[in-house]
Simulated assay, not measured.
Amino acid sequence: MTKKEEMVIARYEHGGERFEILVRPKEAMDLRNGKSVSLSDVVISDTIYKDIKKGLKASPSSLKKVFGTTDFEEVARQIILKGEIPLTAEQRKEILENKRKQVIDYIARNAIDPKTNLPIPRTRIEMAMEQAKVQIDPNKDVEGQALQIVKEIAKVIPIKIAKALIEIKVDPKYSSKVKSQLHNLGEVKKTNWLGDGTLVAEIEIPAGAQQEVIDKLNSLTKGEVEVKIVLVK
């Protein structure tokens, strides 16, 4: 039996119609955030309501009107993805902290100091967010929030989202190994093989990930790689 405190009413309103289902809040938020969660682990019952407290079920015609289907799984998924999911104070705190870390990770990986073209330390980003009194929204996606937050903290520190184009030259001993991993490091712009088997390539990466990519290349080649930052834009 699911404890009362472990279930909440997920609600979606559209076109003058209201739809409600009982869900487990943590699993519902995990599903909304793109994690691999079975719908059966999220919903408490297989009924779509108009008003759960009054025991009123949603009519098939209203489901068809708003969702284009009466299929329970499809409707329930849309309610969870688009609707409101109430959270306990503890759940909200945990979700906010996780979303905050994800936003900071995104900014640290994608942003640079435009004065130096160098990545900005996470601690500096966190401090700037505090100074700018940034608020994290648990229901908004990471990238969208991060881009807005960069605009806000740009009033406090020099910062911008940018891409870096890097050129790498790999010793023949490791060239094939690195070639197979290039697509995991960034967007491959150019590759060229020299007569002795040396690999020369250009890849575009998030500007804040420069050191991360260089470290991975050094790990793949035991340090036998030349890396040059060609352009930051």
Rank of each mutant, 00 (worst) to 15 (best):
L56V: 14
Q148Y: 08
V43G: 01
K140Q: 10
D171S: 14
I79T: 03
S61A: 11
N33W: 07
A76V: 07
V178K: 04
V200L: 10
L118M: 14
T116W: 11
E90A: 00
V37N: 02
L81D: 05
E97P: 09
L217A: 05
L87H: 00
I44Q: 10
A164C: 05
I157S: 03
A146M: 03
I79P: 01
R77D: 12
I229S: 05
R32E: 10
Q211T: 14
L182Y: 04
K133I: 08
Y174P: 05
T70D: 11
Q91E: 06
K50W: 14
R18D: 08
P25Q: 06
K3M: 07
G55T: 01
K3R: 10
K50C: 15
G223N: 01
I203N: 00
Q131V: 14
L81S: 01
I80Y: 06
R122Y: 05
I153K: 01
V103S: 07
N110R: 15
D30L: 09
I52H: 12
K151E: 14
L87P: 02
K216H: 01
G16K: 01
K35M: 10
N192Y: 14
P172G: 03
K177Q: 11
N110T: 12
G55K: 02
E13Q: 14
V142W: 02
V213R: 08
L31A: 00
S175R: 02
H14W: 15
P172I: 00
M1A: 11
K82P: 01
V134F: 08
A58W: 05
D196H: 09
G197A: 07
V200A: 04
L220R: 01
R24K: 13
S180N: 13
T191S: 12
I104T: 10
I159Y: 06
R11M: 08
D113T: 02
I52V: 13
T2I: 13
P121A: 12
A28K: 01
T116E: 11
K99P: 00
S45L: 10
L39R: 01
K189Q: 09
I166K: 08
Y106M: 06
K228C: 03
V134W: 09
K82Q: 08
R100M: 07
V178I: 06
V170L: 05
L231V: 12
D215H: 09
R24Y: 05
D41I: 00
Q131G: 07
E6M: 03
I104L: 04
K222C: 04
V66W: 02
K82N: 10
E97K: 11
L185Y: 00
V150Y: 07
A201K: 02
A108F: 06
L194K: 15
L118H: 09
Q210V: 15
P121G: 08
T116N: 15
E90V: 00
V150F: 01
L22G: 15
K50V: 12
S59A: 14
K82I: 02
E130L: 10
V66S: 04
V43I: 13
I214Y: 12
E212A: 05
